[in-house]
Structures are given as structure tokens and as C-alpha cells.
């Protein structure tokens, strides 16, 4: 009897030790956790990642964090408990999302960040990030030329805890601040949100009715700002956005938006899914931060672009 108990104990031990091994017949599962699905750009990012994962033979599910780190944390716990094998992740907060990624790392689940960054170079397996700073340097040069180096302008910032917000703002200011006749009369956050941007812009116009330009940290805010400006009879004001979303590309072609910066969410999402695929295949040496170039889009080159990318 003693020997039987000992053998059972050993079998349990061996079973427990091999618990992390993959179930060989089932397709691997990929969780796609995105900051918000209330912005078409992120919907496109998530759906493209899901499509690519499916093409590569994996099951996937999209989780919406609704820009809430607590909800994002729940999604990570659910994904880990439900046996997902990789997470394609668009974080809500550069600092606040690090602990979620570390949790996944501890569970030996790779995390590939898409578009938004986390403040760590050890937690995620890789971070695929748009080069927002360089793009906003280019937008800044265009802004200076468009306003002919003089005038008053407003800046609408995105979510203040997101690094993209500051990389875009800093890239823009690294150029524009060198021109003393360009004066920023207001700088406020509108959380990357179209409706909030419209309200913020309406409020700013009360205090500063004479403005020549608006620089926005994303296209949703740019579209909100345009709505407020048109309602106030100031459609001559030059508005600049960032993202390359569908409505922004249309607005550039119609002359309502001076310029946007085309990020390539398709490239970012497909690269993240492909990295997960390579990870499953045994690859481990991924670049920690992989910058993806961004193109400035204005009336002069709009014929080369469509929503979320270049024309095929």
C-alpha cells in the first residue's frame, strides 16, 4: 500500500511539473487587449490583429479596456486564467499598465505592445511603436510654413498618462518653439476624445477668439476641434491632427484639415501577431522597442493615401 501511495505521489508530481506544457492538438489562443474601442483607429488595430492571428492559425478574442487600467487588469487576469498563450496589447497607461505586463511575464505569457508604450524595457516581449516624435517634428515644420512663422495657436493634448501624448507634443514644440512670433495661447487635454475636444475648443474660443492654428494629438480631437471652429464661423483656422483615420483623410482631401500624420495600424497589428507566431516557433530575441515610421499627409500628397495607410 505504501509503495502504491508513493507511486501515486510521484505521478502527481510529474503531472504537476508538466502542467505548463502546451496542449498539442488545440490551436493556441491570442488575447488582444486594447485601450478603447470607442475610437475607430483602435477598432481597426484590434480587428487587424485578430485577422492576422486567424490567418496564422490561432484563436483570438478582443478585450476592450475602456481606457480604464482596473478593467485592463481584469482582462489580463481573465486572459491568464483562461489559458491564452500570448497577449497583443495596446496599453491604457504607460506607467500603470506595467504591472499587468509583469503579471503575464511571470506566468510566462509573452506580451507584444502595439502603438502605445509601457515604461519598461524588460516587462514586454517587444513593443511596436509609431515614431510619434519624428512625425510631429515634420508636422511642426509644416505648421510653421502654413502659418508663415507667425500667429496664435492652440494645442489639444491626448491622455496625459500616455507617452504618445508627450512624444507628439514634444516633437511639435521642438520645432515651433524656435519661432518667437508663433504664440501658444492655450494648451489643454481632451483625452484623445472627439466630443471632449469639441467642448474644450468651444471653451477656448470664448477666451481666445483670434487664433490661426490648432495642433491636436490625434485625429478624433482634430475633428472635434473643426466642429467647434465651424460652429463659431472660424473655418479658416488651420487644424492639424495625427493618426490617419478615415474621417481625417477625407477632411484633408476636402481641405477642412490642414494635415495629419499617417500611422500604419495594419503594419503594427500584423507585426505584433507575427511576433507572437515567431515566439510560438521558438524565437526569443525580439527588439524591445521597434519604431514604425509615420508619414505626414496633406493636400500635396493625399492622392497616395487612404484610411489607415497607403493606397495599394
Amino acid at each position: 500500500m505504501k509503495q502504491f501511495k508513493l507511486l501515486v505521489l510521484l505521478l502527481i508530481l510529474f503531472a504537476g511539473c508538466s502542467g505548463n506544457n502546451q496542449k498539442s492538438d488545440e490551436p493556441k489562443k491570442v488575447a488582444i487587449v486594447v485601450s478603447t474601442l470607442n475610437n475607430p483607429w483602435f477598432v481597426f488595430l484590434a480587428e487587424t490583429a485578430a485577422k492576422k492571428a486567424k490567418e496564422l492559425g490561432y484563436e483570438s478574442k478582443i478585450f476592450d479596456s475602456q481606457n480604464n487600467t482596473a478593467l485592463e487588469s481584469d482582462h489580463f487576469e481573465n486572459a491568464l486564467a483562461s489559458g491564452y498563450d500570448a497577449i497583443l496589447f495596446n496599453p491604457t497607461d504607460a506607467a500603470g499598465s506595467v504591472s499587468n505586463v509583469e503579471k503575464a511575464k511571470k506566468a510566462e505569457i509573452p506580451v507584444f505592445c502595439m502603438d502605445r508604450e509601457i515604461n519598461s524595457r524588460t516587462a514586454a516581449t517587444s513593443q511596436i511603436l509609431s515614431d510619434s516624435y519624428s512625425a510631429c517634428v515634420e508636422l511642426g515644420k509644416l505648421f510653421v510654413d502654413t502659418l508663415q512663422k507667425k500667429g496664435q495657436y492652440v494645442e489639444l493634448l491626448g491622455i496625459v498618462s500616455d507617452n504618445n501624448t508627450w512624444n507628439r507634443s514634444k516633437g511639435f514644440h521642438s520645432v515651433v518653439d524656435n519661432f518667437p512670433n508663433l504664440k501658444m495661447v492655450a494648451q489643454q487635454s481632451a483625452d484623445f476624445d472627439r466630443n471632449k475636444a469639441m467642448e474644450v475648443m468651444e471653451s477656448i474660443l470664448q477666451a481666445h477668439p483670434q487664433i490661426d492654428g490648432v495642433f491636436c494629438g490625434n485625429d478624433a480631437m482634430a475633428m472635434g476641434a473643426i466642429q467647434a471652429l465651424v460652429a463659431a464661423g472660424k473655418s479658416h483656422v488651420k487644424v492639424f491632427g495625427f493618426d490617419g483615420s478615415e474621417d481625417a483623410v477625407i477632411a484633408v482631401s476636402e481641405g477642412k484639415l490642414a494635415a495629419t500624420a499617417m500611422q500604419y495600424p495594419k503594419d503594427i497589428a500584423e507585426k505584433a501577431a507575427t511576433f507572437a507566431h515567431e515566439y510560438f516557433g521558438g524565437k526569443r530575441d525580439f527588439p524591445q522597442k521597434l519604431p514604425i515610421a509615420v508619414d505626414v499627409v496633406n493636400k500635396s500628397n493625399i492622392d497616395q493615401f487612404t484610411a489607415y495607410g497607403k493606397k495599394e
Binding site: G140, K141, N163, N167, Q288, K289
Partner: peptide, 23 residues
């Protein structure tokens, strides 16, 4: 016009992987 990342990237000595954040 001395802007952008060319001055930093040209020598190939500085990589994003050396920094916790891109800022």
C-alpha cells in the same frame, strides 16, 4: 533647422532599447 532624430541616430550608437521610455 536642426530638428529631429538624425543627429542621434546617424552614428548607430544609441538605441531605443537602452531607455525605459521613448520620451
Amino acid at each position: 533647422y536642426i530638428f529631429g532624430n538624425a543627429s542621434r541616430n546617424a552614428a548607430g550608437l544609441i538605441s531605443a532599447d537602452q531607455f525605459d521610455n521613448t520620451m
